[in-house]
Amino acid sequence: MKEFKINLSKGEVLYTGSYICTLSKTAASTPEQISLEAAAEKLAEEVIMQQAMNREHQRQQDVTVIQFRQAQEDIKLLQAENKRYRNALEFYAHETTYTNEFEDCPPAVELDGGQTARKALEGAAE
């Protein structure tokens, strides 16, 4: 029979071989002989613990994937919104003129012929 040294997650070390099993409470302590049933129980506990850890890791990975997809969607929405604002700003920078017809309303672009809006666009492009 092959001999195995199994490091358990609780810091214990299980040694098996030739139908003799020993368990050491820490890697540095002296191993104590245990029955095959006790060794099987220790291994079963370890498998159950590993399965629980695997489930938790899978859950965390699923949450991360969902968050990543949501972030991608948010980026797309923000890019579309940014494009709409940029287009509107370019429109006002090139097309809007101030007329006396709307004296009581503040102009959409300052009276500098859209220079302020153009500077804002240049600053956003950098």
Rank of each mutant, 00 (worst) to 15 (best):
E45G: 04
T22Y: 07
R86E: 02
Q79K: 07
S35W: 07
A38F: 09
K83S: 07
A71Q: 12
E45V: 07
H57Q: 15
T26D: 04
N82C: 07
S9G: 09
A71C: 10
N54W: 12
N87W: 06
Q60G: 10
H94G: 07
T30M: 08
N82I: 09
V109M: 13
L8A: 07
K10C: 12
E122N: 07
Q50L: 13
Y85S: 00
L78R: 10
E32W: 03
P106S: 11
Q61I: 13
P31L: 05
L14F: 09
C21F: 12
H94N: 14
E126K: 11
F102Q: 00
A117Q: 02
H94E: 14
M49I: 13
E126N: 03
I6H: 14
K25F: 08
I6M: 04
A93M: 01
C21T: 04
F4A: 01
A93R: 07
L111C: 14
M53L: 14
I66K: 15
T26G: 01
A44I: 13
K2P: 13
S29E: 10
E73I: 13
E12M: 14
I34F: 06
A80I: 08
E103G: 05
N7C: 12
L77Y: 11
Y92D: 01
D104N: 05
T96A: 10
E110N: 15
L14T: 00
N7P: 07
D112H: 06
V13A: 04
Q33S: 09
E32V: 14
A125D: 08
Y19I: 03
N100D: 05
E101N: 10
E3W: 13
